[in-house]
């Protein structure tokens, strides 16, 4: 099985693809911070933020609705916030019965709930776009040059490289388990839950040992090429004037959102 499913990068020739990854990381984080700062019900600011998302989609040449389609990922979590609908005092809008309980939705509760969802929805779209227009290794470089400790960026780079190799191993293990999970006619396959958990746990243990041994071999391969405990990398990126303009423009837009949100 090939794990391209894990790669969220979409090759295209666009302004956003060409931007320095550091710019993209910083602007994405600023945008998300800005969303968190906007007060509830700042509709004008939310609208501008959405325009920003749409414009970024257009600039990426991935299509206007690219991030919209993928943004449902954050929705299940909205369940957590649903209680604010009923719990914040305000004018009752509607009341409905569920089994024996009455639920009253208040206007203040609705305002807060919708605002939380909009913030989450806008933020996740920018995060989706970030990895769609930036190759993951470039993203890791950007983090390194934004002063994230080298040991963390290195672990992340290794994680990304071996994610594909190890998930492949997991799927081979799972398939082998499946292949042997035969059931005699009329009886249920496998033992109890604990027995099934034991099979899964032993798989994890096995995977750990294989990974451990692999890390030994990788260490040898690194040592064979001169590694003595410190990693050197080249910085493949250089800020161009366009990168500075893009940053300035994005910051101005985000500033405008904040102003609009407080009018």
């Amino acid at each position: 099985m090939h794990f391209d499913a894990f790669d969220r990068y979409h090759e295209k020739e666009s302004i956003l693809h060409r931007l320095d990854p550091r710019v993209k990381v910083v602007v994405t984080v600023l945008f998300i911070v800005s969303n968190a700062l906007l007060p509830d019900g700042a509709w004008l600011a939310f609208a501008l933020a959405w325009m920003f998302v749409l414009a970024s989609n257009l600039l990426s040449k991935l299509g206007l609705g690219y991030t919209f389609k993928r943004s449902i990922i954050a929705l299940p979590f909205a369940l957590i916030a649903i209680t604010v609908l009923f719990s914040i005092p305000g004018n009752p809008l509607t009341t409905f019965r569920l089994f024996v309980w009455d639920f009253t939705i208040t206007d203040a509760g609705l305002l807060r709930f919708v605002s939380i969802l909009i913030r989450a929805w806008l933020s996740v779209q920018m995060a989706i776009l970030l990895v769609a227009v930036t190759r993951f290794p470039d993203l890791v470089h950007a983090l390194e040059h934004l002063r994230v400790p080298a040991i963390l960026t290195t672990i992340i780079a290794f994680l990304y490289r071996y994610l594909f190799v190890l998930t492949d191993e997991v799927f081979r293990l799972l398939r082998a388990r499946q292949a042997r999970s035969a059931a005699a006619p009329g009886s249920r396959s496998g033992g109890g839950v604990v027995w099934r958990a034991k099979v899964a746990g032993n798989m994890a243990g096995q995977l750990f040992l294989r990974s451990y041994e692999r890390s030994d071999r990788i260490y040898n391969a690194m040592v064979a090429r001169g590694y003595v405990g410190h990693l050197y990398t080249l910085n493949p990126h250089e800020m161009k004037s366009g990168d500075y303009y893009a940053t300035a423009f994005a910051i101005a837009a985000i500033f405008l959102m904040q102003v609009l949100g407080r009018l």
Binding site: F158, L163, V193, R196, A200, Y212, S215, I218, G229, L231
Partner: peptide
Amino acid sequence: LGEKQIPLMGVMAAFIFAAQMINFPVA
């Protein structure tokens, strides 16, 4: 951990990531 830490922790991170996919049917 010394100089072995980098490949060890890197592969172990991938291990944890992959191990999170190992599931078992409950009910």
